[in-house]
């Protein structure tokens, strides 16, 4: 079971990397998008690990679904980034604080 632990550690690391990338990133919107992708990958990896443990096909399908959703989400996210860049001429997160109280 030790190798299973290793798999889980890898998927958790992927997720944590993405998450802290979102939190610590101060500058670039696109890198935030990339970090979100990383979190998705972590989750998908998790699904695949469970699928190989229990032999469940539905989990594999779920992983595929996640990848498809991620693609769509990235497309939408990139479109937003492009729109922001058109309007503001930059994609700096620290300057996009319109909702500040």
């Amino acid at each position: 079971m030790l190798n299973m632990h290793a798999y889980f550690i890898v998927s958790s690391l992927l997720f944590a990397l993405g998450f802290f990338g979102v939190i610590i990133n101060r500058k670039n919107l696109i890198s935030i998008l990339l970090c979100i992708e990383l979190m998705f990958l972590g989750v998908a990896t998790n699904f695949i690990i469970y699928a190989s443990i229990y032999g469940a096909v539905s989990a594999k399908i779920m992983a595929l679904m996640i990848i498809v959703v991620t693609v769509a989400e990235t497309a939408v996210g990139l479109a937003i980034v492009i729109l922001i860049h058109k309007q503001q001429q930059h994609i700096d997160v620290t300057k996009l604080t319109r909702l500040k109280g």
Binding site: V22, I23, R26, I32, V93, L96, T97, L99, K100, G101
Partner: peptide, 18 residues
Amino acid sequence: WLRKTQTGFLGHYAFLAL
């Protein structure tokens, strides 16, 4: 006082969520 918590930084919100 409370509106200071609304920083507008995505990172802060995500950290809070964590």
